[in-house]
Design a binder for these strands. Structure first.
Lengths: 207, 207
DNA sequence: GTCTATATACGGATAGAC
DNA sequence: GTCTATCCGTATATAGAC
């Protein structure tokens, strides 16, 4: 609250730049995005943007990292003793919430993967792969105990990711086909309920 | 078989350009793709590419149209009298086959939608929307007859699209996490079987 | 901190030699 | 038909005035 004007200006500008950049990178990918377009979206001259962030590349990496942090904040540990229905429903709901609250970030991530994930190879092969393996192990144990059907846990995780991610990445298609201007809270509620119902039932998980 | 060398050269070059362009546009989006990069991937000088295709824009539109044709070739009509299990399983399988046989085209389409679908607004609001509505009507009738659960048919169609599309668009993530070099035929078989099983069961469709 | 001006490279597209 | 050379706009990035 008690800070010099210059500091507040810096904070405000940096925030505007990050938001603008996320939008432009999401829309056009790393190469297709121009610093000029980001600057215009942020309401600043191009040189100021570069002054604040150093380079286009650094800005892009910072945005990816911010998105990975949001992602990680969502990922709780699970144990074999947990209830499958509760865990998987919570998984679907939190993933869907990430899609709803950060659609630009979701699209930024999608564009990065679509381009072959040049900046995320390490993350995908490391942290994320470990996280998937860990979950998969628990899912298999649940299947052995007869708490769910014996399906491949990795395909299930991809199913949940893709089905939720879709409403950010393909938003333009979704709104065109459903003839809406945008999806609202109640749409997201409906979709989330639909996905929980179909996926739990489809995997033979009783709730 | 009996054509002048120049004609054969033209055919060969045009094919090389289309393939190269699909790859580059898929990876970097419309703005991020450069004619230079396409030319290099096709093994031709930049000017020759522009000589053949006229402009970057025309090339991009031609590729989108080719992809829409592939898509349309896949879409049969359905009737209320048809068997839900057969129809939806065939739907999942043909969509998955499109993903497998034309991953670059799928990614090109994804990049276009991710960027707000500037070139596909008409198609999405027209043809495609009508196609979805038509299917949705039949699905609702099946639900009324008790042949499937009373779910929202549009969310079901999006579920099938997203779950299949994922293996083209997020291929880089899939191969990183599953520690493969690429998905092979038997992987695609497994995934398709998995999706048919979970989605049919999840929607209460008996087979 | 903020802007203008500029350096240097690369973008799409075309003219013209062969 | 095919390539080289070139036009002109825009790209990222920086230098320097204020």
């Amino acid at each position: 609250m008690n800070m010099p004007e210059s500091t507040r200006a810096r904070t405000r500008n940096e925030k505007a730049i990050l938001e603008a950049a996320e939008q432009v990178f999401a829309r056009h990918g790393y190469r297709g995005a121009s610093v000029q377009a980001i600057a215009e979206a942020a309401g600043l001259p191009k040189s100021n943007v570069l002054y604040y962030v150093g380079s286009k590349r650094r800005l892009y990496v910072a945005l990816l990292e911010r998105m990975m942090e949001r992602w990680n904040a969502m990922l709780d540990d699970i144990r074999v003793e947990d209830d499958p229905a509760e865990v998987i429903e919570a998984f679907i709901r939190s993933k869907m919430q990430l899609t709803q609250t950060h659609p630009q970030g979701s699209r930024l991530f999608a564009a990065e993967i679509l381009g072959g994930a040049p900046f995320l190879q390490e993350y995908l092969h490391g942290e994320l792969r470990d996280w998937v393996e860990e979950r998969a192990r628990v899912f298999r144990q649940w299947a052995e105990r007869g708490q769910m059907d014996p399906i491949d846990p990795v395909w299930l995780i991809f199913l949940i990711w893709s089905a939720t991610q879709h409403y950010a990445d393909f938003e333009a298609q979704v709104v065109a086909i459903t003839d809406r201007e945008a999806l609202d809270d109640s749409d997201y509620q409906d979709i989330t309920d639909f996905l929980c119902q179909v996926i739990l039932k489809g995997c033979g998980i009783r709730r």
